[in-house]
């Protein structure tokens, strides 16, 4: 939290704000091109509810997808590495998102950019 900038009027702590003017959607666009089904996600949370990894960790594919969509790549690598690739989410997803392909694409693109 940035407490130093005490200003009047409307300010939002930089850390909290999703700054779409600054955000880069490069990762989202790349993933989208390779796995268009990322666009179908309606954030219902079925994937996160059924997730084998979520029993032991705070992994949430729903959140991960939103982060990619919003251009938030910080900490994404560590997040995506939690997935066991078991495929339960793919069976459960009501929108037919190819979740495993999506995870692989995010993985691969993060590897390439070294983030």
């Amino acid at each position: 939290m940035n407490e130093k900038k005490l200003a009047f009027g409307y300010t939002v702590s930089k850390d909290r704000q999703i700054d779409f003017d600054e955000a880069s959607l490069e990762l989202y666009n790349k993933v989208c091109a390779a796995e268009p089904s990322i666009r179908l996600c309606i954030s219902c949370g079925t994937c996160a509810a059924t997730c084998s990894a979520a029993k032991f960790s705070d992994f949430s594919l729903r959140k991960l997808i939103l982060q990619v969509r919003r251009g938030i790549t910080k900490g994404l690598q560590a997040e995506v590495s939690k997935c066991m690739l078991c495929g339960k989410c793919q069976l459960a997803c009501p929108r037919g998102v190819s979740t495993r392909a999506l995870i692989m694409q995010i993985n691969m693109n993060l590897q390439k950019t070294g983030k």
Binding site: S43, C44, G45, T46, C47, A48, A49, T50, A54, S60, R62, K88, A92, P94
Partner: peptide, 20 residues
């Protein structure tokens, strides 16, 4: 959205969802 339901020994239903 509910992903799956399970049953405990007393016949109660355990549900797993993500509070999104």
């Amino acid at each position: 959205r509910l992903s799956e339901a399970a049953e405990d020994k007393s016949g109660k239903i355990i549900v797993k969802v993500e509070d999104t």
